[in-house]
Nucleic acid binder design. Structure first.
Lengths: 343, 343
DNA sequence: ACACTCGCCGGAAACGTTTACAAGACCGGA
DNA sequence: TCCGGTCTTGTAAACGTTTCCGGCGAGTGT
């Protein structure tokens, strides 16, 4: 109406008022037409034309403010470089995109302070929900989770009574799959190269390893266990230490990066894989398939966990009243060349 | 003031009005205190206390609307699974985080329609800028780039006269580095396994390969060239086709995924690497280091390109008037076991 | 005692949208 | 002709912030 409005510098982005003024209708009518609700044929025509003429595009922020919904989901993982998180992220992205949500990624560096800070930050409501995959979970996490005004889905082992949507891997079952497979093919001295034992996955895989040995009737031997972190370099170094002092006939690694490192050490040491030493990794990432020989690996269903986490999130966004749910995905073993021989 | 205000259901998130009312000051004063601008000691105390009491956290959306700035950067790449993009993303995330920007990732699947749609979507102003790494660039891209109300930095080969911030890899120099190295170590029949030749990188690497051969005085032989896409599986298949019909003494691959595939085929065929066939990959991702033998690879500086792109973006956000800039990052060759022998 | 500056404060506008509400136009049926 | 209903429209409030601006009180210098 007022000339002031119309005088705005020409290249300032068009708003709904611009369109309304140009079409000679109220902003309410303009908004309605643009959202496809009602309007007489004539009004629709005028508004559409005006919108097209000025190239009107509604401002997402203003819309979010009014709708109290951003259309964004946050994903927080320790390291976006780790292939297992990449896989998870890919799956989540896919699901989210289909529901018209977009993904905000945070790399936490496994820093618990940072993670709780992130959770506290949710109060700012810059996203509609968060999928968090922490390596460790402290009390800080739990209270922050409780305080969060937006839903959070945790991928990882949450305490059993924690009232949050939770997607878990079955570490125990997965490790058992690997150890059984190795025992079945005649291996007697099955070593284990773990990642950081003070992380949730590290701790779980360690106890699972001992339990699995017992299950298949093999003794636990201190010297057959080495630890590094979950990265390639340290995994490889750990494998080197292991091989320097012991002579396993199989090595089970807590993830594929470690397995790739172990493979390197084995081959460099002139050992044949799988004839001399069988090798099984974990996570079944692309890396397992791209190594030579290809590495057998237990999948904990990273992609599937991602999908599930996203699904849980979406359904909760639709209906916030839902009771907390817990999903566990079943592990699967893919046998490849690195363990294909029976002794 | 009005009871209506104060009667809001208790667990509705506190707003600045809640705080102001509780502290007995105007919302203007409350806002000022919360932003650390002025206020008498008494007012500051009262507002701080009120804010703490109700656990006030400012709403990011409302703030964005008012500030006309979201604090978000979008990153659009073809495939967030490709390690080279992962590396780039990591670098960008790092830089962005330091400047208090957060990353929104889009996986475009190399779909040009999708990419232009994304660019058009920028008019919604849901992010402050976008870093785009397209595999192909069409007119659609250029006009969409021109229309974008927020800055876009393109990682990849843009036409020379396109007035946008642009970070480029030096494909030519990189390929030359590889071919020279192979020629220097006595290789005469240097094969090339390319990715999709209708992409920017594919086309560039192809012409660079021919030019490099000429530069080192070797003939170009049709039968020594194979193409797949930039993924592992097709790269490997392409390498298999190549080896079925020709006997190169070296293979240069257009990226590390292809190189890993070629390595697989070579070893499976009983050929020794590097004694029989030397192998050089491109992008120098973690994969090159994790293979056995480790694969020599030419880095086109993905991380560095990411960093640069982010820097360009940040500086432009600070000062939108800047003239368009173009950065090119220098390639480097890392020689590893796969090409370490001189014939 | 007066003018002036300065700091603090609150009212109100602004960012750009959607939507509740009420009023007006129009139509068909009694 | 009048009445009840439907459809359309515009005014204004709301989402939650920040900020412009004018007013007011206290302090200072003359």
């Amino acid at each position: 109406m007022s000339r002031k409005r119309l005088q705005k510098s020409a290249d300032a982005p068009a708003t709904v008022r611009t369109v309304a003024a140009l079409a000679g209708v109220s902003i309410a009518s303009a908004s309605r037409v643009l959202n496809g609700i009602g309007g007489s044929t004539e009004t629709v025509r005028r508004v559409r034309e005006a919108a097209a003429r000025v190239g009107y595009v509604p401002n997402a922020i203003a819309r979010s403010l009014q709708a109290r919904r951003t259309g964004l989901l946050a994903l927080a993982v320790a390291d976006i470089g780790n292939p297992v998180y990449v896989e998870m992220m890919r799956a989540i992205e896919e699901v989210a995109k289909r529901a018209d949500y977009q993904l905000l990624v945070h790399a936490t560096g496994a820093d618990p302070e940072g993670e709780t800070a992130l959770l506290e930050g949710l109060a700012r409501r810059y996203v509609d929900g968060m999928i968090l995959s922490p390596l460790r979970i402290g009390d800080g996490h739990l209270t922050a989770l409780g305080r969060s005004p937006v839903p959070v889905t945790v991928v990882g082992q949450l305490p059993d009574d924690a009232p949050f949507d939770n997607v878990r891997a079955d570490s125990h079952g997965g490790v058992l799959l690997a150890i059984e497979h190795l025992a079945d093919t005649g291996r007697k001295r099955i070593a284990f190269v773990n990642g950081a034992p003070d992380t949730l996955p590290g701790a779980a895989r360690m106890t699972a390893y001992r339990a699995a040995l017992t299950a298949v009737g093999l003794p636990y031997e201190e010297e057959l266990v080495e630890i590094g972190d979950f990265q390639y370099a340290q995994g490889r170094a750990a494998a080197a230490r292991l091989l320097a002092r012991a002579r396993p006939d199989a090595i089970f690694c807590a993830n594929d990066l470690i397995a790739a490192g172990a493979l390197h050490e084995l081959l460099a040491g002139g050992l044949r894989v799988p004839q001399d030493v069988a090798l099984v990794g974990m996570d079944d990432t692309a890396l397992a398939e791209m190594s030579f020989p290809q590495i057998s690996s237990v999948s904990l269903g990273a992609a599937e966990r991602g999908r599930l986490a996203a699904d849980l999130m979406l359904s909760r966004l639709e209906n916030p009243q839902l009771a907390p749910r817990r999903e566990t995905v079943a592990p699967t073993l893919t046998v490849r060349a690195s363990s294909e021989v029976t002794l």
